[in-house]
Amino acid sequence: MTKLIEFEAQATAIQTAPTICEEPIRYMEMFRFDWGSAERFIPWSDRSWNCGLFKISCGEAAGYAEYALPSTREFADLVRWASVFARLRGMPVTEAIRYAQKQQQWGSTRMLLAVSALADLEADLHQHVTRERLGSLPLERSFLMDCSQAYYFF
Score class of each variant (00 low, 15 high):
Q101M: 15
E39T: 08
E8V: 11
G59H: 03
A86W: 06
D34M: 03
A68W: 01
M30T: 10
Y64L: 08
C51S: 13
A11C: 03
R133I: 01
P70K: 13
E8G: 06
Q149E: 15
R73Q: 14
F154D: 03
A100C: 04
P43Q: 10
Y99L: 11
I56Y: 04
F33Y: 04
G90Q: 08
L53N: 07
A96N: 01
A100T: 04
E66S: 15
A119E: 15
G52R: 02
D77A: 05
A38G: 13
S116F: 02
Y99S: 08
L125T: 00
G135R: 06
A119D: 15
T2W: 08
R40Q: 09
L88C: 06
R26F: 07
A114I: 07
Q149Y: 01
L78F: 02
K3Y: 09
G135I: 03
Q10M: 10
F153N: 10
A68I: 01
G36V: 04
L121H: 02
W106D: 04
V129R: 13
H126M: 11
E60H: 08
S108R: 07
A11M: 09
E122A: 15
G36A: 10
E74D: 07
A117S: 07
A86C: 09
P138I: 02
M145L: 12
R133V: 04
L69H: 07
V115D: 08
S136D: 13
R40A: 12
T72Q: 11
R133W: 09
E132R: 05
A100P: 04
D120H: 12
F143I: 13
I14C: 05
R98M: 05
R133A: 07
H128Y: 08
C58R: 07
A114S: 13
